[in-house]
Design a binder for these strands. Structure first.
Lengths: 214, 214, 214, 214
DNA sequence: AATGAATGAGCTTTCATTCAT
DNA sequence: TATGAATGAAAGCTCATTCAT
């Protein structure tokens, strides 16, 4: 009785192994994509990096574009999920200092998240556009989500009188563009601009709240 | 002997024809690149769009990447040249209203320039990265130039006391990120956000100068 | 545990199969090269002759020139190896009759070897020059080797007094030119001149030893 | 009356010019073929070397192979013509010394002729085989002519008792192979083997008449 | 005769994907 | 599940040749 049920254990091991394989391939793909870009990355590069045979790739992914999609999709979902949670807090703040703090906290959370995503985030931020409609959709979804969060916060702030009257659609796009660009510089190109994440967030929020004028 | 110089006319006609061919191919390539992205654009698509034979392409461009490079390089050089000229004015302004006006004028100039670049600018803003080091360099050069202009203006403003103390490196990147993103939305994706160029510039400058706070 | 080593068998089978494929392609290429010459031979001709797909060719050879190189190199190495062994004998001979016999034996060995090389030797003797420096080197190496063997034998013969005084460099070249030409006529063009290999060798050695004079 | 016939003078000038053009192109082609081999020589290389436009080439030659053919054909005809004349003398000689001298004279004539052919002979001796049946025929014709001359002389010598009994077909081929090879080494590769043309001819004739034996 | 821009057929080579083992 | 040899469609690029000027 004890020996005759290896199948369950085996299966769970296999499942674990299978998940590992998939994760290994995803990680290998992310690394290769970052190094060479999607189009110059060969499936043979990915399997070489993962240490498996060519055919094994197709046990886990339908096509080469599919692995990019899964990479980007996983990453975007994860970010969107985390940020939606964070952003709830901001809506409530009443005074400027609270607004500042919640904004800084939001950016610190975001940047920390991106930092922990290592390679995957580089793939996302590099904007591998035009590879596959589904990838475009996932990338667009992340950006839209950020714009929506930003826009909602701006409008809430305007409603509560803590933010001046402005065109929330335009300013939300501007804020997201700013964040994307800074994130790209730091997490893809590695230009840290001589500050840590908190200092970076504070400087950006100062700019966002007060502008450059005296 | 006195009047007729047909050789000159002939030469200029020939030169004109040659330039037209090259220009036709560049325009056709821009259109195809915008439609399909560089990697999915075939040389056969470009020559079909230009109405010439396959081999004709290679009379004007060394490789497929070369046409992208020339497109991007021409466009970037042009923008950098124009903007360097505009930006001289800003350095002198003394009072906030003048600062606002010169900034708005700068953005209106930039956006008008981009609008007139039609397809080429879409190629530039789409950031066809990783195709060719020379293309990367040209795109990077444009961005650096914008950051430098922005940074220099911030520092001049701080020196003359019209701009508050801030980290010019970070804010310059933030401003450029904002502009790039807005330009991408409007000139590549065609999202006009319900405003014309001047209104867009004014809203962005208001945000840049005053932030979102009250 | 004691007897079955299926892995070894499997490996040798696989290796055998891989070698067969490569050998099939080499043979097919040799045939096509002989028929059409290197430059008029298309990779598509070779794979058609071998009965495999176009891509399969590139699993075994880096380029079209590579298959020629391997063909020529294999063949030249083989001939050089065999001849170096044969030629040792000649150095020792003391009397004219022995000299004649060892020379005849050498030529019979050489011609037999060439006859067994079938197509490959035709490629070598056709002197596909200028295709690739490596091919030129291999072909040049074979000829140099033959000249060296010939020269060394002449000098040994002169030293032992069995051969008259002559310019060994010139005569060695002359002898090799003679052999190459005869071999080309017989093994590439198929002109047998009404004799078998031994008769051919004897006639040539008579000429080499005694000239045409009475 | 005096001025109205410029056409004749013009025409003859043009004819001269036309011949020059053709000769210039032939010379340019010979140089390029020697440098790169026929297949790696572009028509654009030839016209560049001749300093004329691409289209001009096709005023004088039907195809790229045609220029090779004319080059080879001209050269071969010239050699065959000269040698047929020379060889008449040999047939008459009665004693060994006369035989030796006429053979040496023949080789000196041949080598001098080849030396004066400069580039063209390199093209001929390089054996650009398989390019065009007509070229093959011309090259084959030259070799056959040499073999025929050699064979006829051998047979004449045998008939007159000055040459020993031998297989004239085989020995003629051997002699021609020897001459071709030596000529290739000297006039294509430039290996002079430390002798001038007369010394070379004498050494070869010694070998031909007496062999290597004592 | 001379030009040289234009042509387009045709080649080599790559690489995502499949499938028998 | 894992393998990796085999596939074959597809695309970039070359270059001999043409032809309007």
């Amino acid at each position: 009785m004890s020996v005759t049920k290896p199948s369950i254990k085996k299966q769970s091991l296999d499942e674990g192994a299978a998940k590992d394989r998939r994760a290994e391939l995803l990680a290998a793909a992310a690394g290769v994509f970052v190094d060479k870009g999607f189009h110059d990355s060969k499936v043979s590069d990915i399997v070489a990096a993962a240490g498996v045979a060519q055919g094994t790739f197709y046990l886990y992914f339908k096509t080469k574009a599919d692995v990019l999609l899964q990479l980007v999709d996983d990453c975007c979902q994860d970010i969107i999920g985390t940020l939606s949670a964070c952003s709830q807090v901001k809506a409530d703040c009443r005074d400027p200092e609270q607004l500042r703090e919640s904004n800084v906290a939001f950016l610190v959370d975001l940047f920390s998240l991106l930092e922990n995503k290592h390679q995957a985030i580089k793939v996302v931020l590099s904007g591998q556009t035009g590879v596959d409609p589904a990838v475009d959709k996932a990338l667009g979804g992340l950006k839209s989500a950020l714009v929506e969060i930003s826009k909602a916060n701006l409008e809430a702030g305007m409603a509560s009188g803590i933010i001046r009257k402005l065109d929330s659609a335009i300013v939300a796009e501007a804020v997201v563009g700013m964040i994307y660009h800074i994130a790209f510089e730091r997490f893809v190109l590695g230009r840290r601009l001589g500050v840590n994440i908190r200092q970076l967030a504070e400087e950006l929020v100062d700019f966002e709240l007060n502008g450059i004028g005296k």
